[in-house]
Design a protein around this nucleic acid. Structure first.
Lengths: 125, 125
DNA sequence: CTTCTATTTGCAAATTTAGCCAAATAGCCA
DNA sequence: TGGCTATTTGGCTAAATTTGCAAATAGAAG
């Protein structure tokens, strides 16, 4: 008989969440987000061109790209000595935009709360 | 006259990507993903209940929850001495599911490629 | 072959993150 | 008040991430 540790997360679930976390981690960096949106907006770009726009060392940019590729978000093609990176799932930017607008709302809420507080304080004195 | 560094990422854009990255980083951890799905599926839960399912130290879980809350993904309500965490944007799980199925497809592709390679090698010898 | 250019990799320093234990806090109840 | 439970915080260590510089690779062109 199988002992039922009633609600403990199993190894299968664990693996699923680790894979997901890998992809999300790859996205969770300002430079890498910029890269993803740039590729979505402008189409495939080579390392040097992206590097220009980012303003970091080219080796750093190369590493960011490698990570995104490793997690399956980008693919590459060669043209001469240059390597072009492609966004494999353009739909991720939809999610990013959605998240961004939710963020904007949230910031506004916070701002309102803050303003209200300040207003009340001024009212008191 | 404004000097145009033609395509360098500006501070405004930078700030946007940093905020987005903050939220994504909060999501990018197996335990925190589990928490998010658990709250989506089962509704608000207290720290101790989540801790049971996760199997880590309660202080660790508490910190994960604090991070998710700090990034605006969760909110809290008190009931007696217990604190319940709520998922503020249940829609994030849609994205997670979408991402997960894309991941599954990708793994399958890789598997096929691998199998094909093995097949070819066997054919050669 | 030599010399470019584009890209990746080795390495080390600085920073961040994750985890646990122990201690502090907060609210409930007797 | 004092004890009990739920949660958070401080402190610490181990591990992972990020970054730039320098060196290695790979391909193109003279």
């Amino acid at each position: 008989m199988k002992k039922v540790e009633l609600h403990l997360m199993g190894p299968h679930q664990r693996a699923k969440y680790e894979a997901l976390a890998g992809v999300l981690k790859a996205l969770a960096h300002p430079t890498r987000l910029f890269i993803v949106e740039e590729l979505a907006r402008q189409g495939p770009r080579c390392v040097c061109e992206l590097t220009e726009r980012i303003g970091a060392d080219i080796s750093t940019v190369s590493r960011h790209l490698a990570l995104l590729k490793k997690e399956g978000l980008l693919s590459t093609t060669k043209q001469g000595t240059m390597i072009f990176y492609h966004l494999r799932f353009p739909c991720v930017v939809n999610f990013l935009e959605c998240l961004h607008s939710a963020l904007a709302e949230q910031m506004e809420e916070k701002l309102h709360l803050l303003l209200k507080q300040v207003g009340e304080e001024q009212g008191v004195y």
